[in-house]
């Protein structure tokens, strides 16, 4: 597995390589994470082995996004998101692999817009894909 994209200094807009896969990160949809989302949302906590809430998959995607690119400048803004869920939801307890690629970047009116593609797999089966649109802080 490729692993996270780690640098000595925070990732800047200039560093992002358009068209390239940048990082792969594994994450487990643990019962503890399921319970934490339930405590925030007021949902019932799913049992280990039950289908994971799709919100938990999105939260896992965000954690892998944070872990995939480090360090990062403070103050980045998440501006938009697309998501596609594929097939049945993975079970609570499943481990997913998230792969990130830089799909586009553009400077507009002094703001640094970055589009990262994300694909998450359970083994070789696609579970979630989408794009994260961010305004990068530096």
């Amino acid at each position: 597995m490729m692993g996270p994209a780690l640098k000595e200094t925070p990732w800047t807009f200039a560093d992002f390589p358009v068209g390239e896969t940048m990082a792969e990160v594994e994450i487990a949809l643990t019962p503890e994470k399921a319970a934490l989302w339930a405590s925030i949302s007021g949902a019932e906590t799913p049992a280990a082995g039950a289908p994971a809430p799709r919100a938990l998959m999105v939260a896992a995607m965000m954690e892998t996004y944070i872990r995939a690119l480090q360090p990062r400048p403070p103050g980045n803004v998440h501006a938009g998101q697309t998501l596609s869920f594929h097939g049945p939801a993975p079970a609570v307890g499943a481990t997913l692999t998230a792969r990130f690629a830089c799909r586009a970047k553009e400077e507009k009116k002094g703001r640094f817009w970055i589009t990262l593609g994300v694909e998450m797999f359970e083994g070789t089966r696609p579970a979630l894909s989408g794009e994260i649109l961010s305004i990068w802080a530096a």
Partner: peptide, 30 residues
Amino acid sequence: HGTMGLNLAIEAAERALAPAYAVRDVKIRF
């Protein structure tokens, strides 16, 4: 966090759609 609100919407959708339907695609702007 933007995705906290987004996830609240996804949670609401999943509860209302199950068991016959499921969320397939989402496209949003914060």
